[in-house]
Simulated assay, not measured.
Amino acid sequence: MGYVLIVEDEPDILELVRYNLEKEGFIVRGVSSGEAALNQVRKDPPDLVVLDLMLPGVNGWEVCRELKQDTLYRSIPVVMLTARTEDSDVVAGLEVGADDYVTKPFNPKVLMARLRAALRRTEPPGEHSHKEERILIHGITIDITRHQVTCRPDPDQGEPETIPLSATEFSILEFLSRNPGWVFSRSRIIDAIRGEDYPVTERSVDVQILGLRRKLGICGQLIETVRGVEYRLKGAD
């Protein structure tokens, strides 16, 4: 199934998450501090990180930020698991690159479903997948298999620039790019990339779109806001 690193300083919660993951067939390692988490990732990169926020020493936000800024580890999904439930905390987690945010107390079955979903979003399409391997639109190239985005708004100027995106940013860009010119509400975007009734604040979609525009630079202008409806990727000229 894969290897999951749990970063949690409460032993009871760590063991609860470990038990449910191992029951599903995952290989699990647990650490109790941010420093230990970063060392473990560098020594043996996991397929997914379950990350508490309130940790001794380096906190969860800093751990996530370091991982997402490192080209070697940014593709590893990070699911934050925390007692902090304010919208501002959710937004802060998403802004540093978290792929999901689960609050305590949690239902173990729901947590396992969310972790499996985070892993699926980073899996390359299988041999029988009907997904396109590459999407080309307005100078943006989205390589589905490699989970890579490049941008070159002017084909006559320079080499294309590789754009580092989180798994969620990549999913949103892929969804909008498959439907250029179509306008989608925040809730429709959430349903499309993570399934119906996914408990994420609509504000978090704004944060992801803001991050996408910033990272894409000039190409980010292609993601348009339609007042009263929400977002679209510019259609064909």
Rank of each mutant, 00 (worst) to 15 (best):
K104G: 08
E8C: 02
G2F: 02
P160W: 03
T141C: 08
D206C: 05
L94Q: 07
S129E: 11
P46I: 13
D87P: 14
I218A: 14
I140C: 02
G60I: 07
G2C: 10
W182F: 09
L53G: 04
I189L: 09
R188M: 07
Y101L: 09
V90T: 03
R84D: 00
R213V: 04
E10T: 12
A37H: 04
T82H: 09
D12V: 13
M112W: 13
D12I: 11
D156I: 04
L115F: 08
T201C: 11
F170E: 00
M54R: 12
E66A: 10
D237V: 12
V110T: 11
F175H: 14
E8I: 07
L115M: 13
V41C: 03
L55T: 00
P124K: 10
I218P: 04
D156T: 11
D156G: 11
E10V: 14
E127L: 12
D12A: 14
V110I: 15
I27V: 15
Q208R: 10
R74Q: 07
K68S: 05
E159C: 06
Y3L: 02
E10F: 08
L21E: 03
V78P: 00
T201Q: 11
G220T: 06
L16D: 01
P124S: 01
V63K: 00
T225Q: 13
V183C: 08
P77D: 12
M80K: 05
G235S: 10
Q208D: 03
T145C: 01
G211K: 06
V110C: 06
Q69A: 12
V183D: 09
D44L: 11
T225S: 14
E123V: 07
L222N: 01
L216I: 02
L81T: 03
I193L: 02
S171F: 00
I209E: 00
S33Q: 03
L94F: 15
K43L: 11
T162V: 15
V58A: 06
R116L: 12
N39A: 13
D87L: 15
T85S: 15
P45M: 07
G30S: 09
D87F: 09
V63I: 01
I223V: 10
M54A: 14
I189W: 03
P77W: 06
K215W: 06
G139W: 09
L176S: 10
L176Y: 00
R114M: 14
I193G: 04
V78W: 03
P56Q: 12
L21K: 10
S187K: 14
D154R: 07
E35Y: 11
G126H: 12
D12G: 10
T122E: 03
L210G: 08
V17C: 10
K23F: 12
L111R: 06
L173F: 01
S166F: 05
V200Y: 04
V79I: 14
V79H: 03
Y231V: 08
P46M: 12
R121H: 10
H128M: 12
L176P: 00
N107R: 13
L94G: 02
P125D: 01
D70P: 02
D47G: 09
D44G: 09
D99R: 00
E174P: 04
G195D: 07
R188T: 09
G217K: 10
